[in-house]
Amino acid sequence: MTEKINCGKCNMLLYFGEEINRRLYMRAIPSEETVLGFYNNTCPRCGGKLTLKTVNIATEGRKKWHTTKS
């Protein structure tokens, strides 16, 4: 499953890759906020403020299968 984070204002791609939270004990990127922190919470292109509310987060792939709990 992949995850994509885009700026809600200018649609700049901020993150693309493995779904955050899926690789267990993912220390480097524990949450989406960490990714926004890489950019100092400011979109490098439009200068807009990046918070979890101002970005679009989209995950792709099968959402549930029999081995997945919750």
Partner: peptide, 8 residues
């Protein structure tokens, strides 16, 4: 320029 801005 876009890939230089993108982190990854």
């Amino acid at each position: 320029m876009a890939i230089a801005e993108y982190i990854g």
